[in-house]
Amino acid sequence: MRFAAIADVHGNCAALQAVLEDIAALGIRNIVNLGDCLSGPLEAGRTADLMLLLDMNATVTVRGNHDRYLVETPPGALAPSDSHAYSQLSQRHFDWLRRLPFSAVYRGEVFLCHATPQDDGVYWLEKVSNDGAPFLRPAAEIEAMAQGIDQPLILCGHSHVARAVQLSDGRLIVNPGSVGCPAYDDDKPFFHKVETGHSMASYAILEKTAAGWVPEFRNVLYDHMAMSRLAAENGRPDWAMALATGRVE
């Protein structure tokens, strides 16, 4: 079995299109999507249309925390990135978001969730120190969150950090990184920055071999400066810098 995993597109349609072209060039037809599809100051409507096409082609998508905000939060209470996305969406897009499951099992062997199996807003593989430094979460805490999951391969997103962690029993947890948002800051649980240091779109290929599951992390070039300029035009210099450099001020 060989398939692609994408996550955290965040309305970056240009990045998503480049990733889909790369996946097709590799001859891969099957894709799973780990959520946070639309939120951001970019092209939520175009991205949603493309997501609906992927849905028609049997792509399995789970709901991210920002996907949930778009259908559960009153429009006037949405944060800026969610509000910008909301203004571009039509009823069919909201209907699709409402149908997304919190988690899913793909082909009986792969567990999918956006963040953790318990919470769509908590990093699984990372933790943030009191002084705002993200670091690899202790193994015992990662394992505790994986209790009750029998599948040998587990996929999550949310942190935008491409990473693989092997559990003591051999199960593998993989975060494919972010297709559309290479850097950001957040104030939960403490103020911190997540920076890839590059402007490329990220995703992963998962292949089942005789020895077990093997991830291949891929970075794809696209016209990131067009998206950076769009973010700036939409009043988001923070996103503009993140898309241009993979860093935040």
Rank of each mutant, 00 (worst) to 15 (best):
S202C: 14
E143N: 10
A210V: 14
G170P: 13
S129C: 11
G197S: 09
G197N: 08
Q151T: 15
S178T: 12
P134Q: 04
G212V: 03
P117G: 05
I173Q: 07
G212H: 02
W124P: 03
Y123K: 08
K188E: 07
P215C: 12
F217W: 07
G121F: 06
E207T: 14
R163Y: 08
S202D: 14
A146N: 13
I149N: 04
D186E: 15
P176H: 00
A210L: 15
D119C: 12
Y203E: 04
A139Y: 08
A146P: 14
G157I: 00
W213E: 02
E207A: 12
I205H: 06
E143F: 08
K208H: 13
D150T: 15
V165P: 01
D169W: 03
A139Q: 08
M145K: 00
S199G: 11
S178Q: 05
P152T: 04
V179E: 01
M145D: 01
A139W: 05
A140E: 15
R163D: 12
S129L: 10
W124R: 05
L155F: 14
H158K: 06
L125Q: 07
I154R: 00
S202V: 13
P134S: 05
R137Q: 13
I173M: 14
Q118D: 08
A204H: 12
D169C: 07
A144L: 10
A144N: 11
V128C: 12
F190K: 10
Y184I: 13
V194F: 00
G197Q: 10
G212Y: 01
C156E: 03
Y203T: 07
P117V: 06
D169H: 03
R171F: 11
P176S: 01
D169L: 08
P117K: 03
